[in-house]
């Protein structure tokens, strides 16, 4: 089922993403992150939760890897797509 939010269209079947009608190329981690934040939007995801989602318990992740992925996602869509709640986590706001 197609997920559409704030101009983003994400197809979980084909893992294809477009923004304002234009296809966007995402790395697998970026896609995973975006999918999690959009299902559904409006929920806060803690750093721990997202890090675990991307790397599991075994993989050692650099402390700022998550921030790097978030930074790339913002660059590829819009800077205010993903909101940082300091000390709590990240969210894509429900109403834009």
């Amino acid at each position: 089922m197609l997920i559409e939010h704030a101009g983003i269209s994400l197809n979980p079947g084909t893992q294809q993403v477009s923004y304002l009608g234009q296809p966007v190329i995402l790395t697998p981690k970026e896609y995973q992150l975006l999918h999690e934040l959009l299902s559904p939007p409006g929920r806060v995801m803690t750093r721990d939760h997202l890090t675990q989602l991307l790397y599991g318990w075994n993989e050692e992740a650099e402390s700022n890897t998550l921030e790097v992925h978030i930074h790339h996602l913002r660059k590829k869509f819009s800077t205010d797509l993903i909101r940082t709640i300091r000390g709590v986590g990240y969210l894509v706001e429900e109403r834009r």
Binding site: G42, R43, V44, T46, I85, G87, V88, G89, L91, E94
Partner: peptide, 9 residues
Amino acid sequence: RNSLVQLTP
């Protein structure tokens, strides 16, 4: 943090 996650929206 869990409480704040619930309160943020």
